[in-house]
Nucleic acid binder design. Structure first.
Lengths: 193, 193
DNA sequence: CGTAACTTGAACACTACCGTTCAAATTGGC
DNA sequence: GCCAATTTGAACGGTAGTGTTCAAGTTACG
């Protein structure tokens, strides 16, 4: 019990492989929530057995991938200054993180299929709170509408970002246009009457 | 070749079962795009073999379910008067068909996983056109914004309706509130500056 | 350089789903 | 009431994914 479950010293290549596997998992799972372990291993250019050497089960891998992408999101959000006009803050947030958030949502969806709901919610709660608070602040300051519940406004933001990601993936929307489309749409939807 | 592939006379119970199977397929597939044949048969309260007696494969069933739900949509849309103010027309459309359209989108997603893309597009093109035309008319008449492409506005409508359906399914949104939330959100997002 | 850590493919058992066959039971329609 | 259409479960073979084992190969690192 004195030492953590993971050996303090792992060989560099092993550590590197874990990294590659997680990246591949995020990438594959956000494309297809049902991506197989073989598929992910292949994308990481790693043998399937190697993957199982680092993650005991597919579920564990999915959870690790979710944890990772959410942590990335947390880090990114934490580095942003969201204190000014909520509208500007929202623009900044969208421009710098719409893709990551969309990816997170996709992996989260994959996780919902195989992880206990409580665990998913537990992991997802903290990052979601930041966005939610920004929206509530906008409502409090009178620049975002209050005739619709904040939870719905948050939901709308997520759905739009996720939808934009789908449209980009299917070629209907140019990746470079996405932030503008999302911002313009969401800010208009949030505007008070 | 003189008679159509389906026998002109099918026993009433068989016809009734086909109906139930299709209903169950739409219901199951819109909840889970990967719903198994057993699952659908069970939901239709029909033996799995019976289902295979009416549909030669899962793909055929998915296509039939998609065709059916799109036809329902067509019928419903055709019965609506969408000629007035585009904003009112959009409200009417949302109030009377958001759930059906959301369901269609979900089944369409299921179909994309197993049907040739051209076939999917072919089935989906006609119903989608009606909504698209309404939006373009709104732009032409100057009541919907033109600084974003019509294709994106259409996309936004679909993403919001689909998102609302997800939120209703997960209990975050009351089913009765959905039409208002969608209308208020989309119309605000569409409004000219 | 040598060893322990790590990777790898092949092979295995297990499960789930698909699609089929068959023989028996049920039931609609005349 | 009779017959043919229809339903049904059980069983089968085939495919695909999961998770494990093993033995052989490779490589980081002291």
């Amino acid at each position: 019990m004195t030492r953590p479950l993971a050996k303090p010293t792992r060989r560099a290549d092993a550590q590197h492989n874990v990294e590659r596997i997680l990246e591949a998992a995020v990438s594959c799972l956000s494309r297809d929530p049902d991506a197989s372990v073989s598929e992910i291993a292949q994308a990481a250019r790693v043998g399937r057995v190697t993957l199982y050497g680092h993650f005991p089960s597919r579920d564990a891998l999915v959870e690790a991938a979710l944890t990772r992408v959410l942590a990335e999101g947390e880090e990114l959000l934490a580095g942003l200054d969201l204190t000014g006009d909520p509208r500007d803050a929202l623009r900044v947030l969208i421009r710098s993180s719409w893709l990551l958030i969309a990816q997170s949502s996709a992996v989260l969806e994959a996780a919902q299929a195989s992880l206990p709901p409580e665990r998913v919610h537990e992991l997802h709660a903290e990052p979601a709170r930041r966005v939610d608070q920004l929206i509530r602040r906008g409502q409090d300051e009178g620049v975002f509408r209050v005739d619709l519940p904040a939870s719905w406004l948050t939901s709308v933001l997520h759905h739009i970002m996720k939808g934009a990601a789908v449209d980009v993936a299917s070629g209907q929307v140019d990746r470079a246009d996405a932030p503008r489309l999302i911002s313009e749409t969401v800010l208009a939807a949030y505007r008070v009457d």
